[in-house]
Nucleic acid binder design. Sequence first.
DNA 1: ATGACTAGGTGTCCTAGA
Length: 261
Amino acid sequence: MRIATFNINGIKARLPRLLEWLEETRPAVACLQEIKSQDEGFPAEAFEKIGYHAIWHGQKSFNGVAILADGVKPEETQRGLPLLPGDEEDPQSRYLEAEVNGVRIACLYLPNGNPQPGPKFDYKLAWMRRLQARMRELWQLERPTIVLGDFNVIPEAKDTFSVRAMADDALTQPESRDAYRRLLGDGWTDALDTLNPRGGVWTYWDYQRGAWQRDHGFRIDHCLLSPELADRLVSAGVDKEYRGREKASDHAPVWVEITGT
DNA sequence: ATGACTAGGTGTCCTAGA
Protein backbone atom coordinates (compact mmCIF):
# COMPACT_ATOMS: atom_id res chain seq x y z
CA MET A 1 0.00 0.00 0.00
CA ARG A 2 1.06 3.54 -0.74
CA ILE A 3 0.79 6.21 1.96
CA ALA A 4 1.40 9.80 0.91
CA THR A 5 1.60 13.32 2.30
CA PHE A 6 1.01 16.55 0.39
CA ASN A 7 1.07 20.13 1.63
CA ILE A 8 -1.39 21.52 -0.90
CA ASN A 9 -1.36 25.22 0.12
CA GLY A 10 -5.09 25.83 -0.13
CA ILE A 11 -7.62 23.17 -1.00
CA LYS A 12 -9.84 25.50 -3.03
CA ALA A 13 -7.02 26.76 -5.20
CA ARG A 14 -5.51 23.27 -5.53
CA LEU A 15 -8.54 21.02 -5.99
CA PRO A 16 -8.06 20.24 -9.72
CA ARG A 17 -4.35 19.47 -9.18
CA LEU A 18 -5.15 17.39 -6.12
CA LEU A 19 -7.81 15.26 -7.82
CA GLU A 20 -5.47 14.75 -10.76
CA TRP A 21 -2.68 13.55 -8.47
CA LEU A 22 -5.01 11.18 -6.56
CA GLU A 23 -6.31 9.59 -9.76
CA GLU A 24 -2.89 9.31 -11.37
CA THR A 25 -0.97 7.87 -8.40
CA ARG A 26 -3.87 6.38 -6.40
CA PRO A 27 -2.37 6.31 -2.90
CA ALA A 28 -4.23 4.15 -0.35
CA VAL A 29 -3.93 7.02 2.11
CA ALA A 30 -3.26 10.70 1.44
CA CYS A 31 -2.51 13.15 4.25
CA LEU A 32 -3.07 16.80 3.39
CA GLN A 33 -1.77 19.94 5.07
CA GLU A 34 -2.56 23.64 4.73
CA ILE A 35 -6.07 23.04 3.46
CA LYS A 36 -6.77 26.66 4.53
CA SER A 37 -10.46 25.96 4.78
CA GLN A 38 -13.10 25.90 7.47
CA ASP A 39 -14.72 22.55 8.14
CA GLU A 40 -17.92 23.48 6.27
CA GLY A 41 -15.97 24.46 3.16
CA PHE A 42 -14.16 21.12 2.77
CA PRO A 43 -14.99 19.57 -0.65
CA ALA A 44 -15.67 16.04 0.61
CA GLU A 45 -18.03 15.26 -2.30
CA ALA A 46 -15.30 15.83 -4.87
CA PHE A 47 -13.22 13.14 -3.17
CA GLU A 48 -16.16 10.78 -2.70
CA LYS A 49 -16.78 11.01 -6.42
CA ILE A 50 -13.38 9.46 -7.16
CA GLY A 51 -13.61 6.88 -4.37
CA TYR A 52 -11.85 8.61 -1.46
CA HIS A 53 -13.36 9.01 2.01
CA ALA A 54 -12.04 11.80 4.19
CA ILE A 55 -11.83 13.23 7.67
CA TRP A 56 -10.59 16.77 8.19
CA HIS A 57 -9.69 19.35 10.81
CA GLY A 58 -10.13 22.78 9.30
CA GLN A 59 -9.53 26.37 10.30
CA LYS A 60 -10.34 29.71 8.75
CA SER A 61 -7.65 31.10 6.43
CA PHE A 62 -4.67 29.11 7.66
CA ASN A 63 -3.43 25.65 8.57
CA GLY A 64 -5.86 22.73 8.45
CA VAL A 65 -5.19 19.02 7.86
CA ALA A 66 -7.08 16.09 6.34
CA ILE A 67 -6.74 12.34 5.85
CA LEU A 68 -8.11 10.68 2.71
CA ALA A 69 -8.39 6.92 2.23
CA ASP A 70 -9.18 4.91 -0.89
CA GLY A 71 -12.49 3.08 -0.48
CA VAL A 72 -12.64 3.20 3.31
CA LYS A 73 -13.45 5.86 5.89
CA PRO A 74 -10.52 6.71 8.20
CA GLU A 75 -11.43 6.00 11.84
CA GLU A 76 -10.40 9.09 13.77
CA THR A 77 -8.28 8.43 16.87
CA GLN A 78 -7.05 11.92 17.81
CA ARG A 79 -7.71 15.54 16.81
CA GLY A 80 -5.10 18.07 17.92
CA LEU A 81 -2.14 17.09 20.07
CA PRO A 82 -2.76 16.31 23.75
CA LEU A 83 -1.61 19.25 25.90
CA LEU A 84 1.30 18.91 28.30
CA PRO A 85 1.17 20.39 31.82
CA GLY A 86 1.41 24.19 31.53
CA ASP A 87 0.29 24.25 27.88
CA GLU A 88 -2.50 26.54 26.82
CA GLU A 89 -5.21 25.34 24.49
CA ASP A 90 -3.86 25.18 20.90
CA PRO A 91 -6.20 27.12 18.59
CA GLN A 92 -4.42 25.98 15.41
CA SER A 93 -5.55 22.94 13.39
CA ARG A 94 -2.37 21.02 12.77
CA TYR A 95 -2.81 17.40 13.85
CA LEU A 96 -5.20 14.65 12.87
CA GLU A 97 -4.81 10.92 13.48
CA ALA A 98 -6.74 7.90 12.28
CA GLU A 99 -6.73 4.16 11.79
CA VAL A 100 -6.86 2.97 8.16
CA ASN A 101 -6.73 -0.73 7.27
CA GLY A 102 -4.86 -1.63 10.44
CA VAL A 103 -2.31 1.18 10.14
CA ARG A 104 -2.23 4.15 12.50
CA ILE A 105 -1.83 7.34 10.47
CA ALA A 106 -0.73 10.61 12.12
CA CYS A 107 -1.03 13.61 9.80
CA LEU A 108 0.68 16.80 10.92
CA TYR A 109 1.48 20.34 9.91
CA LEU A 110 4.24 21.50 12.21
CA PRO A 111 4.53 25.26 12.85
CA ASN A 112 6.99 27.11 10.64
CA GLY A 113 8.48 29.11 13.53
CA ASN A 114 9.65 32.19 11.65
CA PRO A 115 10.74 34.71 12.55
CA GLN A 116 13.20 33.37 15.08
CA PRO A 117 13.80 34.04 17.82
CA GLY A 118 10.35 35.02 18.98
CA PRO A 119 6.95 33.74 20.07
CA LYS A 120 6.33 31.83 16.83
CA PHE A 121 9.59 29.95 17.28
CA ASP A 122 8.71 29.22 20.92
CA TYR A 123 5.34 27.90 19.74
CA LYS A 124 7.09 25.62 17.24
CA LEU A 125 9.37 24.13 19.90
CA ALA A 126 6.49 23.66 22.34
CA TRP A 127 4.51 21.96 19.58
CA MET A 128 7.41 19.59 18.94
CA ARG A 129 7.50 18.66 22.63
CA ARG A 130 3.81 17.78 22.48
CA LEU A 131 4.42 15.81 19.28
CA GLN A 132 7.18 13.78 20.89
CA ALA A 133 4.91 12.97 23.83
CA ARG A 134 2.16 11.80 21.46
CA MET A 135 4.61 9.76 19.38
CA ARG A 136 5.78 8.01 22.55
CA GLU A 137 2.19 7.06 23.28
CA LEU A 138 1.85 5.72 19.74
CA TRP A 139 5.10 3.81 20.15
CA GLN A 140 3.70 2.06 23.21
CA LEU A 141 0.87 0.64 21.13
CA GLU A 142 3.44 -1.50 19.24
CA ARG A 143 1.35 -1.29 16.10
CA PRO A 144 2.11 -0.37 12.46
CA THR A 145 2.28 3.44 12.69
CA ILE A 146 3.32 6.25 10.37
CA VAL A 147 3.71 9.89 11.38
CA LEU A 148 3.87 12.04 8.29
CA GLY A 149 3.39 15.54 7.02
CA ASP A 150 5.03 18.92 6.77
CA PHE A 151 7.49 18.99 9.67
CA ASN A 152 8.98 22.38 8.73
CA VAL A 153 12.41 21.09 9.74
CA ILE A 154 15.40 20.69 7.42
CA PRO A 155 17.09 17.84 9.29
CA GLU A 156 20.66 18.20 8.00
CA ALA A 157 22.88 20.23 5.68
CA LYS A 158 22.41 17.62 2.95
CA ASP A 159 18.68 18.39 2.95
CA THR A 160 18.92 21.91 1.51
CA PHE A 161 20.23 23.48 -1.69
CA SER A 162 22.07 26.07 0.37
CA VAL A 163 23.05 25.99 4.01
CA ARG A 164 23.92 29.68 3.85
CA ALA A 165 20.63 30.82 2.39
CA MET A 166 18.76 29.06 5.20
CA ALA A 167 21.16 29.86 8.04
CA ASP A 168 18.83 32.24 9.90
CA ASP A 169 15.65 30.35 9.13
CA ALA A 170 13.65 28.58 11.83
CA LEU A 171 13.75 25.41 9.69
CA THR A 172 17.49 24.92 10.22
CA GLN A 173 18.01 26.21 13.77
CA PRO A 174 19.83 23.83 16.15
CA GLU A 175 16.77 23.79 18.44
CA SER A 176 14.51 22.65 15.57
CA ARG A 177 16.99 20.05 14.40
CA ASP A 178 17.66 18.75 17.89
CA ALA A 179 13.93 18.32 18.48
CA TYR A 180 13.60 16.40 15.20
CA ARG A 181 16.63 14.28 16.07
CA ARG A 182 15.07 13.49 19.43
CA LEU A 183 12.00 12.10 17.63
CA LEU A 184 14.21 9.81 15.56
CA GLY A 185 16.18 8.96 18.70
CA ASP A 186 13.08 7.27 20.06
CA GLY A 187 13.46 4.73 17.25
CA TRP A 188 11.36 6.07 14.36
CA THR A 189 12.63 5.58 10.80
CA ASP A 190 12.80 8.58 8.44
CA ALA A 191 11.81 6.66 5.30
CA LEU A 192 13.03 9.05 2.61
CA ASP A 193 16.34 9.63 4.38
CA THR A 194 16.94 5.92 4.95
CA LEU A 195 16.56 5.22 1.24
CA ASN A 196 18.50 8.34 0.14
CA PRO A 197 21.27 8.62 2.74
CA ARG A 198 23.33 11.02 0.64
CA GLY A 199 20.58 13.65 0.65
CA GLY A 200 19.85 16.07 -2.18
CA VAL A 201 16.15 15.11 -2.24
CA TRP A 202 13.78 18.10 -2.05
CA THR A 203 10.10 18.23 -1.18
CA TYR A 204 9.62 22.03 -1.28
CA TRP A 205 10.60 24.77 -3.72
CA ASP A 206 9.79 28.42 -2.95
CA TYR A 207 7.51 30.32 -5.33
CA GLN A 208 10.04 33.17 -5.26
CA ARG A 209 13.47 33.72 -6.78
CA GLY A 210 12.89 31.16 -9.51
CA ALA A 211 13.55 28.45 -6.93
CA TRP A 212 11.81 25.71 -8.93
CA GLN A 213 13.61 26.52 -12.19
CA ARG A 214 16.96 26.57 -10.37
CA ASP A 215 16.13 23.48 -8.29
CA HIS A 216 16.64 25.47 -5.10
CA GLY A 217 14.66 23.30 -2.73
CA PHE A 218 14.84 21.54 0.56
CA ARG A 219 13.42 18.55 2.40
CA ILE A 220 10.82 19.34 5.06
CA ASP A 221 8.02 16.81 4.40
CA HIS A 222 8.81 13.60 6.24
CA CYS A 223 7.42 10.10 6.79
CA LEU A 224 8.41 8.48 10.09
CA LEU A 225 7.77 4.78 10.51
CA SER A 226 7.39 2.68 13.64
CA PRO A 227 9.44 -0.56 13.64
CA GLU A 228 6.31 -2.53 12.70
CA LEU A 229 6.10 -0.52 9.45
CA ALA A 230 9.80 0.07 8.88
CA ASP A 231 10.18 -3.68 8.41
CA ARG A 232 7.63 -3.47 5.59
CA LEU A 233 9.15 -0.44 3.78
CA VAL A 234 9.65 -1.14 0.07
CA SER A 235 10.34 2.29 -1.41
CA ALA A 236 9.81 6.00 -0.88
CA GLY A 237 9.81 8.97 -3.19
CA VAL A 238 8.75 12.47 -4.16
CA ASP A 239 6.22 13.13 -6.94
CA LYS A 240 8.40 15.99 -8.08
CA GLU A 241 6.68 16.39 -11.43
CA TYR A 242 3.58 17.88 -9.78
CA ARG A 243 5.60 20.86 -8.54
CA GLY A 244 6.18 21.89 -12.14
CA ARG A 245 2.54 21.86 -13.26
CA GLU A 246 0.20 24.83 -13.66
CA LYS A 247 -1.10 26.31 -10.40
CA ALA A 248 1.11 23.97 -8.37
CA SER A 249 1.57 23.92 -4.61
CA ASP A 250 5.03 24.96 -3.42
CA HIS A 251 5.39 21.43 -1.98
CA ALA A 252 5.50 18.16 -3.91
CA PRO A 253 3.78 14.99 -2.66
CA VAL A 254 5.94 12.51 -0.71
CA TRP A 255 5.05 8.83 -0.41
CA VAL A 256 6.12 5.48 1.00
CA GLU A 257 5.29 2.04 -0.35
CA ILE A 258 4.58 -0.61 2.30
CA THR A 259 4.17 -4.33 1.71
CA GLY A 260 0.74 -5.84 2.33
CA THR A 261 -2.66 -4.25 2.12
C1' DA B 1 21.48 45.13 -0.31
C1' DT B 2 16.79 44.29 -1.65
C1' DG B 3 12.90 42.07 -3.56
C1' DA B 4 11.11 38.79 -5.89
C1' DC B 5 5.48 34.62 -5.28
C1' DT B 6 0.94 32.68 -3.76
C1' DA B 7 -3.45 32.07 -1.05
C1' DG B 8 -7.02 33.82 1.80
C1' DG B 9 -9.88 37.39 3.73
C1' DT B 10 -12.41 41.05 2.83
C1' DG B 11 -9.11 44.05 0.31
C1' DT B 12 -7.52 47.81 -3.54
C1' DC B 13 -3.64 45.92 1.48
C1' DC B 14 -2.72 42.93 5.08
C1' DT B 15 -1.06 38.38 7.22
C1' DA B 16 1.19 34.12 6.60
C1' DG B 17 3.92 31.04 4.49
C1' DA B 18 9.27 28.98 4.46
